[in-house]
């Protein structure tokens, strides 16, 4: 091939290359997506990004199947008041592994971002009341439960909880399938009475724990727990804890 002809073919190839690349460069995967334009963390207003960065570590990637109680739980979202969500994200729950997220309490989020999270929980994970009715989120948590109330709680525990948690909350024999002990003072000291009430009402649908009304694993004559009955159960758990109210461990940040 002579130099001139070679040069000619190079010229044609180069021209073709320029035409093809120039035309479709705008469709190439390397083009930055405007949605991923960098922002200051405090300017981030996307619920999903905020949730992934701040909540998924404990509450699970999709708001369930994390070690902490699920947020992606229709029943929970149906009964929890908006101001409670806002307050718990802002201040955390003292003495539990739920930290304060407000920047002013050495958290990482602005008030606006906390608002987005609190509202977003209810719009992204749909709240539904399956049975139509449920006990209110907050109950009458007496500061000094009577022996009577504790006795009522024990009776309820035997019918509603003992099948999985053991007769006196010690856990059942088979370690692989049992949910383990719930009568441990150390364990209970990391739960507020309100958190205990919430778990009894909503159960843990992601891990197979039935809610206040479901009959799975319970006696056939089991009736949905009433608000007062749930108070009695909480009183029993508080009795096991050794303290009627949870005392903050004053060990966490933001306190």
């Amino acid at each position: 091939m002579t130099s001139a002809r070679l040069l000619e073919s190079w010229r044609v190839a180069g021209l073709l290359f320029l035409l093809t690349t120039g035309g479709c460069l705008d469709q190439m995967p390397g083009k930055p997506n405007p949605a991923s334009r960098p922002k200051l963390p405090s300017e981030q207003t996307d619920f999903q990004v905020l949730f992934a960065r701040s909540c998924s570590g404990c509450h699970g990637a999709d708001g369930k199947l994390g070690p902490a109680p699920p947020l992606n739980d229709p029943l929970f979202l149906a009964i929890v008041p908006d101001e409670v969500l806002l307050d718990v994200i802002t201040r955390g729950r003292r003495g539990t592994p739920m930290p304060a997220f407000d920047r002013r309490l050495s958290g990482t989020l602005t008030a606006e971002q906390i608002q987005i999270l609190a509202e977003g929980l209810k719009t992204h994970f749909k709240p539904t009341l399956a049975g139509g009715d449920a006990p209110p989120y907050t109950g009458e948590l007496s500061t000094q439960p009577s022996a009577e109330q504790i006795a009522r709680g024990e009776k309820l525990f035997a019918s509603a909880c003992a099948a999985c948690h053991g007769d006196s909350g010690q856990g059942s024999g088979d370690e692989d399938t049992a949910p383990g002990r719930v009568n441990d003072p150390a364990l209970l000291s990391l739960f507020s009475n309100q958190a205990l009430r919430r778990i009894i009402i909503t159960g843990r649908p992601d891990l197979g724990m039935p809610n206040f009304a479901e009959t799975d694993g319970r006696d056939s004559d089991f009736k949905p727990l009433t608000s007062e009955e749930i108070d009695d159960l909480v009183a029993l758990l508080a009795h096991w804890r050794g303290r009627p109210q949870q005392v903050a461990s004053n060990m966490g940040p933001g306190e």
Binding site: R53, S54, G57, P67, T108, P179
Partner: peptide, 29 residues
């Protein structure tokens, strides 16, 4: 940012007892 952003593996959560679940939260917290 791992403590708030990296979920505890689902397989671990599924086989955990109640104390272990709380321990998992403490692990992150």
């Amino acid at each position: 940012e791992a403590w708030t952003a990296d979920p505890v593996p689902v397989e671990i959560v599924k086989r955990s007892t109640v104390p272990q679940l709380v321990g998992g939260s403490v692990f992150q917290y």
